[in-house]
C-alpha cells in the first residue's frame, strides 16, 4: 500500500469511526462506510489538511470512494 493510501485510510477510520478492515479501496464513503453529506465535506477538509493540497468543490464532488481520494491526491500533491 502506498504511503498516500495508508494516510487516506487512517483519516477515514478516524473521521467515520469505522473498522480499518472495512476501508477497502472500493468502499464508498456514503454507501459502505455510513457517511452523510456533511461527513464527506469534513473528510475532504481533512485530506486537504493532511496533504497540504486544495481540493476544489467540483473535484470534491467526484470523490466518492477511498480509491477516488487516493488517486486525486496522488495526482495533485507533491
Amino acid at each position: 500500500m502506498s504511503d498516500v493510501a495508508e494516510r487516506v485510510k487512517k483519516i477515514v477510520v478516524e473521521h467515520l469511526g469505522v473498522e480499518e478492515a472495512k476501508v477497502t479501496d472500493t468502499a464508498s464513503f456514503i454507501d459502505d462506510l455510513g457517511a452523510d453529506s456533511l461527513d464527506t465535506v469534513e473528510l475532504v477538509m481533512a485530506f486537504e489538511e493532511e496533504f497540504g493540497c486544495e481540493i476544489p468543490d467540483d473535484a470534491a464532488e467526484k470523490i466518492l470512494t477511498v480509491k477516488d481520494a487516493i488517486e486525486f491526491i496522488e495526482s495533485h500533491s507533491g
Binding site: 456533511l38 461527513d39 465535506v41 469534513e42 477538509m45 486537504e48 486544495e54
Partner: peptide
C-alpha cells in the same frame, strides 16, 4: 472560510 467545519452550524 475553507477551514470552517460542516458541523459548525448544526
Amino acid at each position: 472560510p475553507r477551514k470552517v467545519s460542516p458541523f459548525f452550524i448544526p
